[in-house]
Amino acid sequence: MDLQNSETLKDTLSQTAEHSGGDNWIMHHIMDGNYLDFTPFGKIYLPHLEIFGLDISITRHVVFLWISAALLIFLMMKVSKAYKNSLVPKGVSNFFEVLIVFVRDEIAKPTIGKGYEKFVPYLLTAFFFILLSNFLGLIPFSATITSNISVTVVLAVSSFLVTQAGGIKKNGVFGYFKGLIPHGVPVFLLPIMFVVELLGLFTKPFALAIRLFANMTAGHIVIYALISLIFVMKSYFIAPVSIGMALFIYLLEVLVALLQAYIFTMLSSLFIGMAVHQDH
């Protein structure tokens, strides 16, 4: 399903590119670059770095990755400091407490069950990092790092690793891989089932990565496409419609930003739960 999604996405992209006269300006906005784009005020070019032949330049997305991480650390430090003074939250802490308790009680607890406490810090980090990055992407002149597949792949891989580590720690290496195959499968099907389940193990994070990436990319592309309608049609009269629709998509993106953070965390938690408690 995700594969299909990305294909349609790609079709849309190429079509939009054709319609806008070959100049792929939408892609420039969506994708990474070696400068911070403050058009029409100018651009800030970022340094180029290389290590062992790997290009590790500080790109736009790296900058916003750091901004997101720094902001998250700053916010959470503030929240945790507030608890030192009194156990009763106030203001910002109150808001974040709702989310933290939500992740703990509505995501981790029901899906992982017994022993969920160990995974709560990871899930909280993933949730807030994705949430903050998604929202950060909605601010003008910023970039959405979660609409870059490199970022979502890393997030999905870490979820995958946490899942495997949790499963192996709980059930042992042998027990864990044995537990992958459901009970009551005929013996001659065992090799096939093992392969299928092993594949399933890898499709889960793959789906996680693609889902987050596609969802965060799609909204932005639609907004840009709607705005570009004004220039494609070369008419002022289309502007109110375009802007209205773009605003609607933007509001929808606010919802999607929250929803995708929730879905990513929820599914990660679900996979962890399945790996830790294999008997159901």
Partner: peptide, 25 residues
């Protein structure tokens, strides 16, 4: 997948997980 960005993401996300776990969560 851009290797450079993935590299920075790994570093940042790992640091984020450990810092937040210790000082926030």
């Amino acid at each position: 997948v851009d290797g450079g960005l993935a590299f920075w993401t790994v570093l940042t996300f790992l640091a984020l997980v450990f810092i937040l776990k210790k000082f926030a969560w």
